[in-house]
């Protein structure tokens, strides 16, 4: 059985956002609202220092599909709505989700409200009980009065909701989620089971995302993990797991970070400035 994982090569990633857009169109996620991001592929962007000595670092983030997933442990329903598939993916079942949000509270990479918690992203997002899903495409108000059509008009003309809806079938998942249920990255399992790669991987112009089977020693991901010293995220504040620290055993790895390089650059910078 494969154990899927992802490696992100930070020296190849420039933070262009292609992965985020590809994910949003593939998985029909809605716009960020009320502390919920609905971005299954997101970023931690850090800007340090003062102009002209500034340092900008993008770090793509997504569900870590942890081996020891706390979201699965706390799910109260039977059979669990949040569950592990044999291929290592953490998958959420729509039918069984009651919307209690325990998974969101217990995932170290998620927040119930990113605005209130002051964090940049949340792996798990919640579709509220009372708010409409994709409200923009249900709103009949013209975007610019007397000039443009409304979101509802666009989705009516396109014949789907949202208008750009990607229609796919998944054993546990609806391609557009319902009210009162959580949602998260499913590693594009619907694509992977057809022999395709996750859409974020396909979209990355720099090939910074490498997806594959960690159990296959010859796979690109296994070779990269052997060649470079990978790091894993500890939480959604950007902290990393220290060596020896297991955390929730995330299956998304980062290689070739700029940390070492950055120190060298910082050391060189004042010397340059003096000249």
């Amino acid at each position: 059985m494969p154990k899927y994982g992802m490696v992100i090569d930070l020296q190849k990633c420039v933070g262009c956002g292609a992965c985020a857009i590809a994910c949003k169109t593939e998985n029909n996620t809605q716009d960020r609202a009320k502390g919920q991001t609905y971005n299954w592929a997101d970023f931690i962007m850090t800007t340090e220092g003062k102009y002209p000595n500034t340092k900008f670092t993008p770090r793509p983030v997504l569900c870590n599909h942890c081996t020891d997933a706390p979201c699965v442990k706390v799910c109260p329903v039977t059979p669990k709505a949040m569950h592990k598939h044999e291929n290592g993916m953490t998958i959420h079942n729509q039918e069984r989700c009651i919307g209690c949000r325990l998974c969101q509270q217990n995932c170290p990479y998620s927040a119930e409200d990113v605005d209130k918690k002051g964090v940049q992203y949340s792996v798990i997002s919640f579709n509220d009980f009372t708010d409409e899903v994709h409200p923009f495409y249900k709103d009949t108000k013209e975007v610019i009065p007397g000039c443009t059509s409304s979101g509802a008009d666009v989705s009516k003309k396109a014949g789907d909701m949202p208008p750009h809806r990607t229609i796919y079938k998944h054993s546990d998942y609806a391609n557009v989620r319902e009210k009162g249920k959580v949602e998260k990255c499913i590693f594009c399992e619907h694509r992977v089971s057809n022999g395709e790669l996750p859409n974020c991987v396909v979209a990355c112009p720099a090939k910074a995302r490498i997806f594959g089977d960690q159990n296959d020693p010859k796979s690109e991901i296994s070779l990269l993990l052997k060649k470079h010293k990978p790091v894993q995220l500890k939480n959604n504040k950007g902290e990393l797991l220290k060596s020896g620290e297991k955390g929730t055993q995330p299956n998304v790895y980062y290689i070739r970070g700029f940390r070492g390089e950055a120190k060298k650059m910082a050391a060189a910078a004042p010397a340059k400035a003096k000249k």
Binding site: P76, C100, R101, E112, F129, T130
Partner: peptide, 23 residues
């Protein structure tokens, strides 16, 4: 106001009601 009980309730006896700016 986490409203986990609204999701847990099997019969729909609990619901969220918008009240002013709060729920």
């Amino acid at each position: 106001n986490c409203f986990a009980c609204v999701g847990m309730c099997p019969t729909g006896a609990l619901k969220i009601e918008n009240k002013d700016d709060d729920r």
